[in-house]
């Protein structure tokens, strides 16, 4: 390839070849361009298709059940025509909140450790460990939760089963760690070194510098990491379903069987006939999840914009 570029060889190229080269057709390029573009557009079509396909049965449900009776109804009893999903929605929010309560501080500590305290050797252990944590299938999380965590809670709480939001919150809290830690670490590392040194030069301790300069400066990025963790937690299905106990009532405690939007969908998906109001209600719950997730993405985009503005400001 490189030989063609040298002047001498170019001169030596026989005229016939030169004509061929110059007259080369370029149609193949246009085809490829079209294919690349089509692939990109396919993403837009996919998300649109998902919204339509999930939305249609949901709208069919709202022809029969008023949206507010769906959203705020406290009783889920399809056999009696009651489609209130408040118990599931409350369960999802509570489980996600627990996950953030447990995974947030732990994850922030992990991110601070990785970004600011760990020696290169400790980092070489910690980083793959977090990747492994991300790679464990959610059913395995659920299985460990079911066979180790739930019995543990049962023994130490005196409750009958040990199922409930506490178990789900702990499992979810661990599951969101990888997402949260890697993004929060990026945010912490993005804080310019010169303001870190500026603080240390004032005679502050490492921790004072971390707590009063680095974390505040990285905060939008940490918040974005938290929101993405939240999105992961609220959409998680299998692990939660396995440790939650699956009772369709508004949870009254941390160690009582409860349900979430996701666990209820996976439980009833196979047992409700297509087109039935009960089946449509599952799609309406899916739509709710979809909208919450999309809302979180919009929130992340907003905080990220703030984050980049903040870093620019620091200069």
């Amino acid at each position: 390839m490189s030989r063609v570029s040298t002047g001498r060889t170019a001169v030596a190229t026989p005229a016939a070849v030169r004509t061929r080269i110059r007259g080369r057709r370029r149609d193949a390029g246009a085809i490829w361009r079209g294919l690349f573009f089509a692939s990109a557009i396919f993403l837009v079509i996919s998300i649109a298709a998902i919204m339509v396909m999930i939305g249609r049965p949901a709208i069919a449900l709202f022809a029969q059940v008023r949206p507010w009776a769906f959203l705020f109804g406290r009783v889920w009893a399809p056999e009696h025509g009651l489609y209130g999903v408040l118990p599931f929605f409350a369960g999802s929010l509570a489980a996600t909140g627990m996950a953030l309560l447990i995974g947030g501080p732990l994850g922030l500590a992990g991110a601070i450790y990785l970004a600011k305290l760990a020696t290169p050797r400790a980092q070489r252990v910690m980083r793959p460990a977090i990747q492994l944590l991300a790679g464990i299938p959610s059913v395995v999380y659920g299985w460990v939760g079911l066979t180790a965590l739930v019995p543990f809670i049962r023994r130490h709480s005196g409750h009958v089963t040990g199922f409930g939001l506490l178990a789900a919150g702990i499992v979810l809290g661990v599951m969101v760690l990888p997402t949260f830690i890697s993004l929060a670490e990026d945010a912490l590392r993005a804080v310019p070194q010169d303001i870190e040194h500026g603080s240390l030069a004032l005679g502050t301790t490492r921790w004072q510098t971390i707590a009063h300069v680095i974390i505040p400066a990285a905060w939008p990025g940490i918040a974005a990491a938290g929101i993405l963790g939240l999105a992961r937690a609220i959409g998680e299905t299998m692990a939660v379903q396995m440790v939650l106990g699956n009772s369709p009532v508004i949870p009254t405690g941390l160690i009582v069987p409860a349900s979430t939007l996701t666990s209820e969908i996976v439980l009833e998906m196979g047992s409700t006939p297509q087109g039935s109001p009960a089946n449509n209600a599952l799609f309406a719950m899916g739509l709710l999840l979809l909208l919450v997730s999309l809302g979180l993405i919009v929130a992340v985009r907003a905080t990220r914009r703030e984050a980049t503005a903040g870093v620019r400001e620091a200069h």
């Binding site: 959409g235 996701t262 979809l290």
Partner: peptide
């Protein structure tokens, strides 16, 4: 960001 159960549906 779409939850996997929604992909399932």
């Amino acid at each position: 960001s779409v939850p996997s159960i929604v992909f399932g549906l």
